Computed example of a mutant assay.
Amino acid sequence: MTKNFSKLFLRISITSFIGIYCLALAPSALAKNGNGNGKGNGNSNQTSTTNTTTTTTASSATCSLTDVFLGNVSASACQGPFSGNDTGSSSTLLDDLNSGLFNLGVDATWELVGKTDSPDNFGFEATGKNSGNWSLNQALGEGLSTFVISLKTSSAYSTYLFKDVDFAKTGLTGSFNTIGVALDGSGKQGKDLSHASIFRATYVNLPEPAKAKVPEPTATIGLGLVMGGMLINRRRKSHGIQQCRSSQLS
């Protein structure tokens, strides 16, 4: 009986060992063959992932002085781009200009005088999409003019300063390019122009310092007579004192 029990235990042990060994091999076999059928037909439930590199075109832009010309004269300074609108109730551009967006070195007040999508007194217009021409039908004022042109695309705007311009020398037409406002999907050119605006600066006339009052001629003569009388009186007193001393000594 002991021998039979030993044989039975041995068979059970061998069978268990073989079962455990097969279970250990099963996962690797399934992994190699896809669905475990040994044919590797790709019907596995595992998902194959491929790393794909996506090239993103830079959408940022930076304004440049050569984005806007008046005749053959480029802007003297620029700021932008800024997100939002350059005009309208929600815009802060006019306040920014009056707060010193461009440092003119003197006090100035700014006003919006033209917009290409609405009529104005100066006939400010712009033709073209992401580049083109702009024009005025008359100068912004007599003498030298300081103004800012704002280029607005769908979501941003940039501002360009022209300081102390003589329209008699530059003319009333110029060119623009929105590449300094917002780039399109290619990253090589700007988005289409929504509108352009023009703001004019008026220099503040500071009060002149008070000038010293010049005495009137009659007042000057009177003052001279008084001074002369005082001088004569002093001399008389001095002469009288000297005579008294002389008489006392004699």
Rank of each mutant, 00 (worst) to 15 (best):
Y157S: 04
T159W: 04
S158T: 09
I221G: 02
F162M: 14
F167C: 07
K152F: 02
A168M: 12
V204G: 09
I179F: 01
F162G: 13
A156Q: 13
I179D: 07
P209Y: 11
I179P: 00
L193R: 09
Y203N: 14
T153K: 02
L172T: 13
I198Y: 08
V204D: 15
V204L: 10
G190D: 05
S186N: 11
N177E: 11
A156F: 06
I221K: 06
L183Q: 12
L183T: 12
S197A: 10
I179K: 13
I179Y: 02
A219K: 04
T178F: 00
F176D: 09
V214G: 00
S194P: 00
T153A: 02
A210D: 12
D184W: 08
S175T: 14
T202D: 14
V204A: 10
G180W: 03
K152M: 09
S186I: 02
P217F: 00
D184L: 03
V204C: 08
Q189L: 04
A210T: 13
R200I: 14
G174E: 07
T178S: 00
A219P: 01
V165H: 07
F167R: 15
I198M: 09
L183E: 08
E208Y: 10
A212P: 12
Y157G: 06
F176W: 11
Q189S: 08
L172Y: 13
F199Y: 15
A156W: 08
G187I: 03
T202R: 11
A210C: 01
N205R: 15
F199G: 05
V165C: 03
P209L: 10
G187F: 00
L183C: 04
T153H: 01
F162N: 14
P209A: 14
K152R: 13
